[in-house]
C-alpha cells in the first residue's frame, strides 16, 4: 500500500527530496546558518515563481500550455503598483481588481482557445504580447507605489517561526486541493488524459479547459501581487523569463507536458529548486558570470531525466507516446 502510494507519486517526491537536500546544504554553507531571517529571505525569493508554477501546472494538467502567464503576472504587477496603496479599503479594492484582471486575462485565453479553436501555444503567445503591451501602457518604466504595510506583512515572518511567504505557498496548495477534488478539477485532469474519453463520458470539456486558464490567470495575478510586495513597484518587463521558468518548474516537478498526470506540489518544489540553486551558486563564490551557465545545465540535466522512461521500454513503438 505504502509502496504503491510512493510509486504513484515518485516524481514529485523526488523533486521534494532534491529540494530538501539543497535546503540542508544551503543552510549549512550559509554564514548565518538556520535562522528565521535566512529562511524568510530564502522563501521570499521562490514564492512568486512557485505561485506562477501552480497556475502553469493547472493548465498543463489539462494538456494545454500558457505562454502568457508571465505577461499576465507583469500586467497585474503593474496594475498593483497603481491600485494597491492608500487606506485599507482602497488596498482591498485594489487587490480585488488586480485578481479580477488576472482572471479576465485567463478567461480571454480560455475563450480564444476553446471557442476560437486555436492551438494553446500560438493563442497564448499572441495574447501574451497583448498583455505585455497593456502593461507597458499603464507603467512605461518600472516604478509606482505599493502598500508598505502589506509588503512588510507578506515578506516578514509569522510569530518568528514561519516565513509568511511559506504560508502563502501552503495556502496555494490548500486552495487547490478542494478544486482538484471537485468536478471541475477532476474534469481538468480527465481532459488532459484523454479529451475524447472525457467528452464521451459526458464531462463538460469546454468549461474545464476555460476554467484551467482562468485559474492560471488568478495564480499569475497572485504572483504579480507578491512580486509587488517584494519590490514595492511595478515592472512591465519581467514576463518572459518568468514564463520560461514556470514551464521549467513544472517539468522539474514531474508534471508531464502531455497532460493528465502531475501535481502542483511537485511544481512548487521545482520552482524552489530553481531559486535555491541560484542562491547556492552565489554562496559558493561561483563567478556571477557562470550563473546562467549552471542554471542552464541544471535545467538540461533535469529534463534529461525524462529520458529514463526509455530504459523501461520493450518496444520502440512505446517511445512515440
Amino acid at each position: 500500500m505504502i509502496i504503491r502510494t510512493l510509486r504513484a507519486h515518485m516524481r514529485p517526491l523526488t523533486a521534494w527530496a532534491v529540494l530538501a537536500f539543497l535546503i540542508v546544504y544551503y543552510l549549512s554553507i550559509h554564514p548565518r546558518g538556520l535562522s528565521i531571517g535566512v529562511l524568510t529571505a530564502w522563501s521570499n525569493q521562490g514564492t512568486a515563481l512557485a505561485l506562477l508554477a501552480v497556475g502553469q501546472t493547472i493548465v498543463v494538467l489539462s494538456r494545454g500550455i500558457d505562454l502568457s502567464i508571465g505577461p499576465i503576472m507583469a500586467l497585474t504587477n503593474c496594475m498593483a503598483s497603481h491600485l494597491v496603496n492608500g487606506g485599507p479599503v482602497e488596498v482591498a479594492i485594489g487587490m480585488i481588481l488586480v485578481i479580477a484582471t488576472g482572471a479576465a486575462c485567463g478567461l480571454l485565453n480560455g475563450l480564444v482557445i476553446v471557442i476560437g479553436r486555436m492551438q494553446a501555444i500560438i493563442a497564448t503567445l499572441a495574447t501574451g504580447t497583448i498583455f505585455s503591451g497593456i502593461a507597458l501602457i499603464i507603467r512605461p518604466i518600472p516604478g509606482g507605489d505599493i502598500s508598505e504595510g502589506l509588503s512588510d506583512f507578506f515578506s516578514g515572518d509569522f510569530g518568528g517561526l514561519v516565513p509568511m511567504s511559506l504560508i502563502v505557498i501552503l495556502g496555494a496548495i490548500a486552495a487547490w486541493y478542494p478544486i482538484r477534488k471537485s468536478v471541475l478539477g477532476r474534469t481538468i485532469v480527465a481532459v488532459g488524459s484523454s479529451e475524447s474519453a472525457a467528452y464521451a463520458s459526458g464531462l463538460r470539456v469546454k468549461r474545464a479547459k476555460i476554467g484551467a486558464y482562468v485559474l492560471a490567470g488568478v495564480f499569475a495575478s497572485l504572483s504579480g501581487l507578491f512580486v509587488g510586495f517584494q519590490t514595492l513597484s511595478g515592472d512591465p518587463s519581467i514576463g518572459l523569463s518568468y514564463t520560461l521558468n514556470s514551464i521549467a518548474a513544472v517539468v522539474i516537478g514531474g508534471t508531464a507536458l502531455t497532460g493528465g498526470a502531475g501535481s502542483i506540489a511537485g511544481s512548487i518544489a521545482g520552482a524552489l529548486i530553481l531559486r535555491t540553486i541560484g542562491n547556492l551558486l552565489f554562496f559558493n563564490d561561483i563567478e556571477p558570470l557562470a550563473q546562467p551557465l549552471f542554471e542552464g545545465l541544471v535545467l538540461l540535466v533535469a529534463v534529461s531525466f525524462g529520458a529514463a522512461r526509455l530504459l523501461r521500454m520493450t518496444s520502440r513503438m512505446e517511445a512515440f507516446q
Binding site: 502531455t258 558570470l289 546562467p292 551557465l293 542552464g296 545545465l297 529534463v303 529520458a307 526509455l310
Partner: peptide
Amino acid sequence: GVAYLRIPSMIWTLATNNVLMGILVYFSG
C-alpha cells in the same frame, strides 16, 4: 534530445537555449 531522448522539443530547446546563453555570458566575461 527530441529524437533519441524523446524529450518534448519545447522544453529541450528551451534548455539548450539557456545553456548557450550561459556559455556565451561566461566566456564574454
